[in-house]
């Protein structure tokens, strides 16, 4: 089911959480709402769910006006950051909850409920744990129970509010890949909120980048990463180095005059021993190996600015850099924006 969000506004006191937001979430896609805290992404998600009402604007599910419909009747599955499982119920009872609160006429029989629950537990790979209580599960398991519980009522839309936010790094990565595979299996229209750009880039079909209650850009992960619409998106999706530059038909040259600002990712900076066209002279200030990469901090001669370059281990070994040495940094790829944005 597609979701349309039309000129939605939301104000909390004097704080504008959402400022004229328009967005269409296509049916069957996994969309990420990405932004820093306070950007309004969770508020937008809660408005879609019906847990919050917009001050103005409307929400449509498949073209049907849904704004005033109660959360109970929206048929959305909602997964909370802190799971919000019912502590006094077993895993099985938790997952069955949505089925057992249905009006008597629509309620499936006990046997059907059991079958459905076990089918879902198989789907989230928690089959053996049906009789456990939430307190006996790990964080990742709890979140999968929450997901199974949300899916039990066959929601038209699945909404996830920072679903992996409370998990440790390794579990987080595992679970988000698993979510991606799960989505490929069940194809329910899903929206998830995250502040982690890596998570959004890895999992989502489409990314909606939000900032200060507005949408900055909507696009596929490749689009928002490779062609950011503005400096904010560029900055939010990865590391940034700023060069003052003169832009000549896509031929970016790092130079002093301030016509526009060049944005370069750390891994797009080539570090060389020899001077070449477009390179700036710099001094090696700091070298730090971070997992598979080596991060090198360079001080650009004459400007006092630092640039961070990310090299591969191999590349770093070949260069055999030493602190205080002089090298040449050349941006391989640069995006220019008019200099109105400060990082």
């Amino acid at each position: 089911m597609s979701i349309e969000i039309v000129s939605v506004n939301k104000q909390f006191g004097s704080f504008t959480a959402l400022n004229d937001v328009n967005l269409t979430v296509p049916s069957g896609e996994l969309t990420a709402l990405l932004g820093p805290s306070g950007s309004g992404k969770t508020t937008l998600l809660r408005i879609i769910a019906g847990l919050e009402t917009p001050d103005a604007g409307s929400i449509r599910f498949d073209g049907e006006e849904t704004t005033d419909r109660h959360v109970r009747e929206r048929q959305v599955g909602f997964v909370f950051q802190h799971y919000a499982l019912f502590r006094h119920m077993t895993v099985e009872e938790n997952v069955a909850f949505g089925l057992t609160v249905k009006p008597r006429k629509e309620r499936p029989s006990k046997k059907e409920v059991r079958e459905r629950v076990h089918e879902l537990l198989r789907l989230v790979q928690l089959e053996g744990l049906a009789d456990r209580f939430p307190s006996q599960l790990s964080g990742g398991q709890r979140q999968r129970v929450a997901l199974a519980r949300a899916l039990a009522v066959e929601p038209k839309v699945l909404l996830l509010d920072e679903p992996f936010g409370a998990l440790d790094a390794k579990v987080r990565v595992e679970l988000r890949r698993w979510l991606r595979r799960l989505h490929d299996e069940i194809h329910v229209t899903s929206v998830f909120v995250t502040h982690d750009q890596e998570e959004a880039l890895e999992v989502a079909d489409r990314i909606v980048v939000m900032n200060k209650g507005r949408i900055e850009q909507v696009g596929t992960p490749a689009e928002v990463y490779d062609q950011p619409a503005n400096p904010f998106v560029f900055d939010f999706l990865g590391s940034v180095n700023l060069f003052h530059c003169r832009s000549e038909q896509g031929q970016a040259r790092a130079a002093a005059p301030e016509l526009s600002m060049g944005y370069v990712r750390s891994h797009d900076i080539e570090v060389e021993r020899r001077q070449s066209d477009g390179a700036v002279e710099a001094e090696v200030r700091h070298i730090q190996a971070v997992g598979p990469a080596v991060r090198v901090e360079l001080l650009v001669r004459g400007t006092g600015k630092t640039v961070e370059a990310e090299l591969s281990r191999d590349g770093a070994e070949r260069l055999a850099l030493g602190l205080g040495e002089t090298v040449y940094a050349r941006p391989r790829k640069m995006q220019t924006f008019v200099a109105d944005y400060q990082i």
């Binding site: 048929q75 959305v76 909602f78 802190h82 919000a84 499982l85 609160v101």
Partner: peptide, 21 residues
């Protein structure tokens, strides 16, 4: 947490079911 009540509402429980269960 208010979230557990919201979770119950999302799953289709009415006020009484939320309170009772």
């Amino acid at each position: 947490e208010e979230e557990i009540e919201e979770a119950a509402a999302c799953l289709g429980a009415n006020r009484w079911q939320t309170f009772r269960r």
